[in-house]
Simulated assay, not measured.
Amino acid sequence: MTESRGAPRRRRPLTVAAVPVRRPTLVSLRHKQRSQPPGRRSTRRQRAAYKIKKWARWKGWAKIPVTVGVLSLLATLYFTSQTLVATQRQSGATENQVRIAEQGQYTDRFGKAVEQLGQPGAEKVDVRLGGIYALQHLVRNTSDYQPTVIKLLTAFIRTHAPAEQSCPRDKGSKLPEDIQAALSVVAQRDPQWDGPGRLDLTHTCLTGARLFHANLRGADLSYAVLFHADLNGAELSDSTVFHSDLREASVDYTRLFGVDLHSTDVRGVDLSKVVGLK
């Protein structure tokens, strides 16, 4: 029997597939509570606890000790460098102060030695000797004073031992003690610190002078009296001995390169062992 066209159709019942519902577990609830920040209605304590937990889970905590160590090392290096710079500056200032103090001491010593050298009279010979040796010690400490000291001592020799008629010319004569001391200081100097100019020993009375291995290279000995002087092994190259008196002088192995003896009185002098004489 067929249904009539006007009769309503029957609808088939819909079938709904059962979908399993996942119930929240305690672990998931705790994780949700950890991951989600507290809402506006949460208490201040809950928000503080959440911030603490968040900071505690931060992965950068493991790098903090390394970062702190690097920063500490950089800070140490910086302060060490600043300390070294300050120390160097202080050391430089100290050196300058020491140098200034030394210059002041040298000036005082030079002035005192000059004062001693100018003491007249035979009874003051020991004072003059002290001044001469003080000048020698000063030159050994600082070469800056050598040109001045050498000029001072040569002037002292020319003034106190002039080649006058009273200059002795006998074998038994010797130089005064202070003149010999001044001449020895001049002869034992280091010529490289002499400065410009020549040794001026012109018109000097140097009878019986002890100039063994003396360095008088380039000296001007014109009109000087060197009677019976000991010049063995002395350096007299390029010196001027114009009208000088060298009678009876000892000149074994004396260096006379570039020296003209034509106007020099060399009577009684054995020139056979002289070095450099043409």
Rank of each mutant, 00 (worst) to 15 (best):
Lys124Ile: 02
Leu261Ala: 06
Arg169Glu: 15
Leu261Thr: 02
Gly130His: 08
Val225Asp: 07
Val266Glu: 02
Gln180Ser: 10
Gly218Glu: 02
Arg11Lys: 14
Asn232His: 04
Asp265Trp: 11
His243Leu: 12
Ser4Trp: 13
Val70Lys: 11
Phe79Gln: 12
Asp270Asn: 14
Tyr145Arg: 08
Ala18Glu: 00
His160Phe: 15
Leu206Asp: 05
Leu221Thr: 01
Leu236Gly: 03
Arg34Gly: 00
Val266Tyr: 06
Gln119Cys: 03
Pro37Asp: 09
Arg57Ile: 10
Phe212Lys: 02
Ala155Leu: 10
Gly276Leu: 05
Val274Asn: 07
Val70Arg: 12
Phe257Thr: 13
Gly131Pro: 04
Tyr253Asp: 13
Gln136Tyr: 03
Gly92His: 14
Ser28Asn: 09
Gly69Thr: 09
Tyr145Pro: 01
Leu117Glu: 00
Arg22Cys: 01
Gly233Asn: 03
Leu14Ile: 09
Ala234Asp: 04
Ser237His: 04
Ala209Arg: 02
Val149Ser: 06
Thr2Leu: 06
Lys63Ala: 10
Phe257Leu: 10
Ala187Ser: 15
Thr25Arg: 06
Leu29Thr: 15
Ala209Val: 04
Lys171Arg: 14
His203Phe: 13
Thr264Tyr: 03
Lys59Ser: 07
Ser91Ile: 06
Gly276Phe: 04
Thr76Arg: 02
Lys278Gly: 14
Asp126Asn: 01
Gln46Leu: 12
Gln88Met: 12
Ile179Ser: 03
Gly121Gln: 10
Val251Cys: 02
Val27Pro: 09
Arg22Ile: 01
Arg11Val: 13
Ile100Cys: 07
Gln146Ala: 09
Ala155His: 10
Arg41His: 12
Asp260Cys: 08
Asp260Met: 09
Gly130Glu: 12
Ser91His: 11
Val186Met: 07
Thr154Val: 05
Ile157Thr: 12
Val149Asp: 07
Arg189Ile: 08
Ile157Ala: 10
Phe212Tyr: 04
Asn232Trp: 02
Asp200Trp: 06
Asp190Cys: 10
Arg99Ala: 14
Arg217Ala: 00
Glu3Gln: 11
Pro120Gly: 03
Gln97His: 14
Lys32Cys: 07
Ala163Thr: 07
Ile132Lys: 05
Asp220His: 07
Val266Thr: 15
Ala249Glu: 00
Gly92Ala: 14
Thr254Ser: 10
Phe212Ile: 05
Ala101Tyr: 08
Leu84Asn: 10
Phe257Pro: 01
Gly131Glu: 02
Leu206Glu: 06
Asp252Tyr: 10
Val125Gly: 04
Gly60Leu: 08
Ile52Val: 07
Lys51Asp: 05
Thr43Asp: 05
Ile157Val: 15
Gln82Ile: 14
Leu201Asp: 00
Tyr78Thr: 15
Asp265Gly: 08
Lys59Met: 03
Glu95Arg: 15
Thr80Trp: 13
Cys167Val: 00
